[in-house]
Amino acid sequence: MITVTRLNGQSVTINALLIELVEEAADTVITLTTGNKLVVKETTAEIVALNQQYLRTIGLVAAAQKSE
């Protein structure tokens, strides 16, 4: 689970494994595999870092590393 901030300042915790797509234009939009969308303050890079950190904590280190 990762915690992100909605545009209204409210923190929300989402299941990082359900993230399908992160789009960054004027705002950052997270699309979940459920079809739900969240508009958040964090940048795409911050969300990727949060997701990688989460994957490490649950033991999916290989999935969190860049493939070369």
Rank of each mutant, 00 (worst) to 15 (best):
T43P: 00
A16W: 08
V29R: 12
A26S: 03
L38A: 03
G9D: 15
T33G: 12
E20H: 03
Q10S: 13
T28S: 07
K41R: 12
T43C: 00
N15E: 11
R6P: 00
I30V: 11
A16D: 06
G35I: 11
I2N: 05
K37C: 07
V4P: 00
E20P: 01
I14F: 10
E23K: 03
T33L: 13
L7I: 15
I2S: 04
T43I: 03
K37H: 07
T34C: 08
V39I: 14
G35F: 12
G35Q: 12
T5I: 10
A25T: 12
I30K: 01
T13R: 03
L38I: 02
I14T: 05
T13A: 11
K41A: 11
I19N: 05
I19T: 05
I19Q: 06
N8G: 14
T34P: 02
S11G: 01
N36C: 07
T43G: 04
L17M: 14
V4G: 01
L17Y: 11
L32G: 04
I14D: 09
V39M: 06
T5S: 13
M1E: 14
L17F: 08
L7E: 10
E20L: 08
L7Q: 08
S11P: 05
V4Q: 02
E42F: 06
I19S: 05
T5H: 04
V29T: 15
N15V: 09
V22D: 11
G35K: 12
E20K: 11
N8T: 15
I2P: 03
I19C: 04
N36W: 08
T5E: 07
N8K: 11
V40Q: 11
S11K: 09
A16N: 09
N36K: 15
A25W: 00
